[in-house]
């Protein structure tokens, strides 16, 4: 139950961050990606601020053997560079640039009643499911 409460608070803070920074608006994100147009550097500052806070959190985590309310840290440990990593990031980037939506803002805006967000999120879930069944059938992941 505690993990559910923590996740709800963290999700809410995350959504507040997206809303206050305006990254919830695809037009704002496209302004950052449009380096040849009227470039809006705001997203870079969002990243910098988030990275500073999160770096401090890793410092704190490094001094502990376990999180405060869970048995262990579940942090990815892979360091190998694979074609899946690069190819996946490239496909994601193309989709991101087409509309200006990545998973966080797309889901966070779902309560605002725009049909476009629901359409995008349904397609995104379908994309995730297609990936899952594709690799299940190939018997690897």
């Amino acid at each position: 139950m505690r993990s559910v409460v923590i996740a709800f608070i963290a999700g809410t803070l995350f959504g507040l961050g997206l809303t206050i920074s305006r990254m919830i608006d695809p037009a704002k994100v496209l302004g950052f990606l449009d380096v040849a147009g009227e470039w809006d550097a705001s997203l870079a500052l969002v990243m910098v601020a988030a990275l500073v806070v999160m770096s401090l959190a890793y410092r704190l985590a490094a001094g502990r053997s376990a999180p405060f309310f869970a048995e262990k840290f579940q942090v990815p440990t892979r360091r190998d560079i694979t074609s899946r990593l690069v190819g996946g990031a490239a496909l994601f980037g193309i989709g991101w640039g087409l509309v200006g939506l990545c998973p966080g803002p797309a889901i966070s805006g779902l309560g605002l009643g725009l049909p476009q967000l629901a359409q995008f999120v349904l397609a995104m879930l379908a994309g995730m499911a297609i990936h899952r069944f594709w690799f299940l059938r190939k018997g690897s992941h």
Binding site: L16, G17, G31, S42, V53, A57, A66, P67
Partner: peptide, 28 residues
């Protein structure tokens, strides 16, 4: 269109959310 202050505040909140998940639940 540059909005540096709201970007920094919003970014810090996103960082705080990720920090809570890591330090309290050990999750990414």
């Amino acid at each position: 269109n540059f909005t540096p202050y709201s970007a920094l505040i919003g970014g810090a909140l996103i960082g705080l959310a990720a920090a809570l998940m890591l330090l309290l639940s050990g999750r990414i």
